[in-house]
């Protein structure tokens, strides 16, 4: 069980890079400004559906640049905490009440099972370096005016997906839908934002579902229950002490 939690934590850490940071080059700045969480307090939930089985994790995350502190609140993992500072990952288990440093290999890859992959998130950091983006259409999607932007992998770039198409809300600067394609043109994954919400005059996707299009009945939902931008984070929050 510890491992699943770990994967989700990795997800949260990467969440700070935002899930849908994809825009055509001229839109990307606005979009990133909007979705990139430099400093935030997020209460979120992740639900992995695999055929008839369901795995639900609830967590509270504090994010500040590349530092993050995550605490799980669902019964199964209640009290489990993670601290990440750069490449160091520390874990606290409530029963044990001890803090253990995790080995680096636990961070590698990850996210198996869930439809989000580690690479999916890592990539978003440098999307414009990996893809040539182009606005292919302007369209109404989910009753919102959207740019439809297509990104094709640059020659020689080491990107997981060959092509991505993303629907970006023109006014709210959020990606409402994203399709990820294989080089053959086959649709592999689809992320759809089902709910958006305004926090402090800032629109943010609060419920998104990722589906593996090659496998029926599997999906991963990511739900943000509350978000606070630029919260006051007391000094010493990202320390081993606060894990205990």
């Amino acid at each position: 069980m510890k491992k699943v939690i770990l994967l989700l934590v990795i997800f949260v850490f990467l969440f700070s890079y935002s899930i849908f940071a994809v825009t055509a080059d001229e839109i990307i700045q606005k979009r990133d400004d909007n979705e990139y969480l430099k400093t935030a307090r997020v209460e979120s939930k992740m639900v992995i559906n695999n055929n008839n089985r369901k795995l639900e994790k609830v967590m509270i995350s504090l994010i500040d640049g590349n530092k993050a502190l995550v605490e799980f609140t669902n019964p199964m993992d209640r009290g489990t905490k993670f601290l990440k500072r750069e490449d160091n990952l520390w874990m606290f288990f409530p029963d044990a009440e001890d803090v253990v440093k995790l080995s680096g290999h636990m961070l590698e890859r990850g996210m198996m099972g869930s439809d989000f992959s580690y690479k999916d998130m890592m990539e978003s950091e440098k999307l414009t370096e990996l893809y040539n983006f182009e606005i292919i259409e302007e369209q109404e999607y989910q009753k919102r005016p959207c740019y439809v932007i297509e990104g094709i992998k640059k020659q020689g770039a080491e990107a997981t997906y060959y092509k991505r198409i993303v629907w970006i809300d023109k006014e709210r600067h959020i990606g409402l839908k994203e399709e990820l394609y294989a080089e053959s043109g086959k649709l592999l994954k689809e992320i759809v934002v089902q709910e958006v919400q305004e926090f402090d005059h800032r629109w943010y996707p609060t419920k998104s579902v990722m589906e593996d299009k090659l496998r029926e009945n599997t999906s991963t939902e990511f739900i943000i229950e509350s978000i606070e931008f630029n919260p006051e984070i007391p000094e010493g929050t990202f320390s081993l002490q606060s894990l205990q």
Binding site: D95, A96, E97, D98, V100, K101, L102, S103
Partner: peptide, 8 residues
């Protein structure tokens, strides 16, 4: 209280 000095 639980006291454990484990390191993995």
């Amino acid at each position: 209280q639980p006291v454990s000095w484990s390191f993995g």
